[in-house]
């Protein structure tokens, strides 16, 4: 008799743990008429729980050294490399050809390596010492924005997901990501990769479900600092922009219709979620004008 396969229960990822949605709901996306499984249909409450987790993780993640964050992100890539086969299988299940699937997994690993390298470098590119016309040492350095709501690209279940998460966490921000609605399998498995990569719980939280229902809450939540939207839907964009006003969220909209493009590998994606801080400090007695107290 043939062995009976054990099927996977798909869960969401909040605060480093894998709960099912508190709502108990599910949905079953289909590819070519075949169901992918019973996927968690996350609720507003799940999102709010995730914000609490993300906020609490922000302190230690943004406080970690850049070198440490860099190594942790490199570790994610190492873990992903080791689980290539599983991701390829899931991508095929979601409708990719084998060649496409392999290409997507490899590109995702390399993209993580790319952003891992930026953790301890973007500050050197974006900061400045400002030659003010008085006796002051004046410098501008970047700090991470905080908690970011992210809507991952709908059509690129793994590469798109990785591409929106990596630049946000590289600088020390934390995020709540809503995965691709119709291709959610890789997001659940990617959460398992994150969980085994020394990424502190809560830095990345991943929800599955219907983004149409979550957008409003993701954009209006008062403890979220920024929003990254990576799809093409003018109606959704407008909704986010309107809802983001109350606490002046930084809204960033990205076109991910070409996920492989090099345009998605740039430190300016990190800069989108940075705040610039300028410090003035007097210098005793330099120059003709005297001290700058």
């Amino acid at each position: 008799m043939e062995r009976v396969e054990v099927l996977k229960t798909y869960k969401i990822y909040i605060g480093g743990k894998f709960p099912r949605t508190e709502s108990g709901r599910y949905y079953s996306p289909e590819i070519n008429g075949k169901s992918l499984g019973n996927i968690c249909h996350s609720s507003r409450k799940d999102f709010r729980n995730a914000v609490v987790a993300a906020r609490s993780a922000f302190g230690s993640w943004s406080g970690a050294t850049a070198y440490n964050r860099s190594q942790v992100m490199y570790r994610i890539a190492e873990m992903l490399e080791g689980r290539k086969a599983q991701f390829v299988a899931e991508l095929i299940q979601q409708g990719s050809s084998k060649i496409q699937a392999e290409k997507e997994v490899i590109a995702s690993i390399d993209r993580l390596i790319y952003y891992a390298g930026w953790c301890d470098k973007y500050a050197q590119v974006f900061s400045a010492v400002n030659p003010v016309a008085s006796s002051h040492f004046n410098f501008t350095t970047p700090e991470p924005t905080g908690v970011v709501s992210v809507v991952a690209p709908e059509d690129s279940g793994l590469l798109g997901l990785v591409s929106v998460i990596a630049p946000v966490i590289a600088s020390g921000s934390s995020c709540i990501v809503v995965a691709s609605e119709n291709k959610p399998l890789c997001s659940v498995t990617f959460a398992e990769v994150l969980n085994s990569s020394d990424v502190p719980g809560g830095v990345v939280n991943i929800l599955t479900g219907k983004r149409g229902e979550l957008l409003k809450h993701m954009a209006s939540h008062m403890d979220v600092n920024a929003f990254l939207y990576a799809n093409n839907n003018k109606k959704e964009e407008l909704e986010i922009q309107k809802e983001a006003v109350e606490n002046l969220k930084r809204v960033v909209i990205k076109d991910f219709s070409k996920p492989y493009s090099d345009e998605h590998e740039t430190p300016y994606y990190i800069e989108d979620f940075l705040e610039m801080k300028t410090t003035w400090h007097p210098i005793e007695k330099i120059g003709a004008k005297g001290s700058g107290y």
Partner: peptide, 17 residues
């Protein structure tokens, strides 16, 4: 070790430097 780790990341980012 940290020096190798740091400079590894620069290899494909020189245009930004």
């Amino acid at each position: 070790c940290a020096h190798f780790f740091y400079y590894a990341g620069w290899a494909d980012k020189l245009d930004y430097a």
